[in-house]
Design a protein around this nucleic acid. Structure first.
Length: 565
RNA sequence: UGUCCCGUGGUGUAAUUGGCAACACGUCUGAUUCUGGAUCAGAAGAGUUCAGGUUCGAGACCUGACGGGACAACCA
C-alpha cells in the first residue's frame, strides 16, 4: 500500500519469499490463494530457529488473507513422542499464533500415502528392493559418480504389490525390504536416484499404534501432505533445496488439475555463542550440561520464556534479521537489544541489591521509617507509583563503594556524596574494613535532611544516584545470573573441535544473599522487572513467597563497565 | 571429479528491478538525566570477493575464476 511518493521504508521492503508469494497471488496461481503450514517433527522442543519459521509461515498467511496449518511431521515412530506435541503447541501459542482447528498430522495421511505408493507401483514407478541398506547405499554411487540399478528395479507389478502388502502385514523383518520410487539412477542429484519411500518399522506409532508396519519417508510424506491440505507455499530451510526436484516429481505424479504447492527455501537462524541443532541441544540436556530443555541458557522457546524473553521481543528480532538465502550467523546482541527495547517499556522498576553492603546513616533517627514514593516506570506514567520503606540502615551494591576510587567514579567513596534514589543525599564519613581479607564490611554515612526527593533542597546536584534496600525491610532472594552458554561465537562450526569444548564454565552464577524491596515478595513466576541500574529480571518457577528467585534476562547497557575495563 | 545454492561496512539486512550504496545492531563522541539505563544530536566504518564483458551508466545482467555451504540416513 504505497502512497504517492512516500519513500520506501524498511518495513515495506519485502523478503524474496514475500515477493514470490506476491507474484504468485498476482498471477492468480492456485486461484490466487495462500495457504501455508508449520510442520515440526515432534521429536524435541522448539527453539528460536523454529520461531523464525513460525513467524514466516503464520505471518505470510495472515498478511495475505490466507491460513496456516499446524502439521506434525510424525512419520518416524521410533523418534517421536507425545510429550513433545504438547510443548510445541504451547510454544506456538505463546508466540501468539493460532492454527485454529487445523491441527494435522502426517500420520493422518498414512492411508492415502499407502494408496499413492500402490498406485506408483501399478504405474511401474515404484518397486520393492530386497537388498540390505549398505548395498542399496553403495549402488547409489557418489555425488560425482552415477548410481547403478538394483537387480530388483524391474520387478513385476504384481510381485511388487504383493510384497509391499506383505511388508505392511509384518511378514518381513525391519530392514529386509524397502519400497523405492523408480526415478533416475543417473541423476546428478542424489535424491533422485530411486529414493526409498517406505521402510518397515515395527515399533508402535504414538497415534496410529500398530496399524502400520510400513512408514513413509520424509520425501514421500511432506510434499504429498502439503498437497492433501491444499498448501500453496511450502516454506522450509535451505538444506531442503536439493530435495525440491523430488518434491516436484511426486507432485507431478499426484496432481490432477492445475493446483500445486510450491516449496521455497530460506536461511536457517544461527545465533552467536549458542547452538541450534536439536541433536546437540538434546545432548546438553542428557549430559546435564544444562538443567533441562527450559534452562534459561538454552535457545529453546521454553528456555527463553523462563529467562524472561517476551514473545514480542522474539518476533521483533526475527523481523529484524530477515529472510534470505545467505547462511548467516546473527549477533546475540541484536536479540538482547530487542528484549531491552520491549522490557524497557513494559517492566516496573524496582530495587534489588545483588551483592549487599550495609550502609549505616549515623545521624538518621534510630527506629524511624519513612515511606518514599517512587515512579514505577519513567517510560509509562500509567504504571503509577509505589512506596518503599527507608530507614537508618540500608543495603547498597558492593560495587557502588570504593575505598580509593578511580577518576569518574560517580558512586560512594570516603568524603563523597551520592543520592539514594527517591530518598536522601548521603555522605560517606567512614567505613569498617576487615583487616585480614580487606573486605569492606560496613560503610558509615550522614544524610542531609533537606535533600529528600521532592523536597526543598532536592535539586542539589550529586554525581551519582544509587539503588538501595532498607535493611530491616529487605526480602532475601536468590538471583541467577546467566552469561552466554559458549565462549566461542560459533561453537558448532569448528571442524576440529567438539562444541562441548567451548562451553562457558561461568554461564550460570547463583547469588544467594540478595536483598530485594518488600513489594517483590508477592511476585509470581514469569513476572518481569527492571532492577534499577542492573538489568531486567524475571521470576523463576522455583520462586516462593518466602524465598523469591529471579533470573537475570539481560543486563542494562553499562558504559561504566566498559570504561572500567 | 558432479549437481545445486550463496558471496554488499565488525554483524544482519536494503537498494524503486541498470542511475553514482541505505537501515538496524554494535562501536565512538557530545547533550540530557534522581537508573553510568532510556532519550536526543552526531561520528567513524563498505565502493558491493576478484578479473573480464555488455551499457552513456552495473552491487544488480553475461562469462570465468576464487571463497563458503548443501547433497551419497531404511532421519526430518
Amino acid at each position: 500500500m504505497k502512497e504517492n511518493n512516500e519513500p520506501v521504508t524498511r518495513s515495506e521492503s519485502q523478503s524474496f519469499i514475500e515477493s514470490f508469494i506476491g507474484k504468485d497471488l498476482k498471477d492468480g496461481k492456485n486461484r490466487g490463494k495462500i495457504h501455508t503450514r508449520f510442520p515440526p517433527e515432534p521429536n524435541g522442543y522448539l527453539h528460536i530457529g523454529h520461531a523464525k519459521a513460525i513467524c514466516l509461515d503464520f505471518g505470510m498467511a495472515k498478511k495475505y488473507g490466507g491460513k496456516c496449518n499446524l502439521r506434525f511431521d510424525d512419520t518416524n515412530p521410533v523418534k517421536e513422542e507425545v510429550e513433545y506435541i504438547d510443548s510445541i503447541k504451547e510454544d506456538i501459542h505463546w508466540l501468539g499464533f493460532d492454527w485454529e482447528e487445523r491441527e494435522f498430522y502426517a500420520s493422518d495421511y498414512f492411508g492415502k500415502l499407502y494408496n499413492f505408493a500402490a498406485d506408483l507401483i501399478k504405474r511401474g514407478l515404484a518397486y520393492v528392493d530386497d537388498q540390505p541398506a549398505d548395498l542399496i547405499s553403495s549402488q547409489k554411487g557418489t555425488p560425482s559418480q552415477p548410481g547403478t540399478d538394483s537387480p530388483y528395479r524391474n520387478r513385476q507389478v504384481n510381485e511388487n504389490l504383493d510384497l509391499f502388502n506383505r511388508m505392511n502385514k509384518g511378514e518381513f523383518d525391519e530392514g529386509s525390504r524397502v519400497l523405492r520410487a523408480k526415478v533416475d539412477m543417473n541423476s546428478p542429484n542424489m535424491h533422485m536416484r530411486d529414493p526409498i519411500i517406505y521402510r518397515i518399522i515395527k515399533s508402535p506409532h504414538h497415534r496410529t499404534g500398530s496399524t502400520w508396519m510400513v512408514y513413509p519417508m520424509y520425501d514421500f510424506a511432506h510434499g504429498q501432505s502439503d498437497y492433501f491440505e491444499g498448501i500453496t507455499h511450502s516454506l522450509c530451510t535451505l538444506e531442503f533445496e536439493v530435495h525440491r526436484p523430488l518434491y516436484d516429481w511426486f507432485i507431478d505424479q499426484l496432481k490432477s488439475d492445475d493446483y500445486r504447492p510450491r516449496q521455497i527455501e530460506f536461511n536457517r537462524l544461527n545465533l552467536t555463542y549458542t547452538i541450534m541443532s536439536k541433536r546437540k541441544l538434546l545432548e546438553l540436556v542428557q549430559e546435564e550440561k544444562v538443567r533441562g530443555w527450559d534452562d534459561p541458557r538454552m535457545p529453546t522457546l521454553c528456555g527463553l520464556r523462563r529467562r524472561g524473553y517476551t514473545p514480542e521481543s522474539i518476533k521483533r528480532f526475527v523481523d529484524l534479521i530477515g529472510y534470505t538465502k545467505v547462511e548467516a550467523i546473527n549477533d546475540v546482541s541484536l536479540l538482547e537489544h530487542a528484549v531491552r527495547e520491549d522490557l524497557n517499556m513494559k517492566t516496573p522498576r524496582v530495587f534489588g541489591v545483588l551483592n549487599p553492603l550495609k550502609v549505616i546513616i549515623k545521624n538518621y533517627p534510630e527506629g524511624q521509617v519513612e515511606n518514599v514514593e517512587l515512579i514505577n516506570n519513567p517510560e509509562d506514567e500509567s504504571m503509577g507509583k509505589r512506596v518503599v520503606p527507608f530507614s537508618r540502615e540500608v543495603y547498597i551494591e558492593q560495587d557502588d563503594f570504593m575505598e580509593t576510587p578511580p577518576n569518574k567514579f560517580f558512586r560512594l567513596a570516603p568524603g563523597m556524596e551520592v543520592r539514594l534514589k527517591g530518598a536522601y543525599i548521603i555522605k560517606c564519613e567512614g567505613f569498617k574494613k576487615n583487616e585480614k581479607t580487606g573486605a569492606i564490611e560496613e560503610v558509615y554515612c550522614t544524610y542531609d535532611q533537606n535533600t529528600r526527593s521532592g523536597g526543598n533542597a532536592s535539586d542539589k546536584k550529586v554525581k551519582g544516584t544509587l539503588h538501595w534496600v532498607s535493611a530491616q525491610h529487605a526480602v532475601d532472594a536468590e538471583v541467577r545470573l546467566y552469561d552466554r552458554l559458549f565462549i566461542h561465537e560459533d561453537p558448532a562450526g569448528q571442524k576440529d573441535d567438539d562444541y562441548r569444548k567451548f562451553l562457558n564454565p561461568d554461564s550460570l552464577k547463583i547469588l544467594k544473599g540478595c536483598k530485594v524491596e518488600p513489594s517483590l515478595r508477592s511476585a509470581r513466576p514469569l513476572e518481569k522487572f527492571q532492577f534499577q541500574r542492573l538489568g531486567y529480571f524475571c521470576v523463576d518457577y522455583d520462586s516462593t513467597s518466602s524465598k523469591p528467585v529471579f533470573n537475570r534476562t539481560v543486563q542494562l547497557k553499562d558504559t561504566w563497565a566498559k570504561v572500567n575495563k
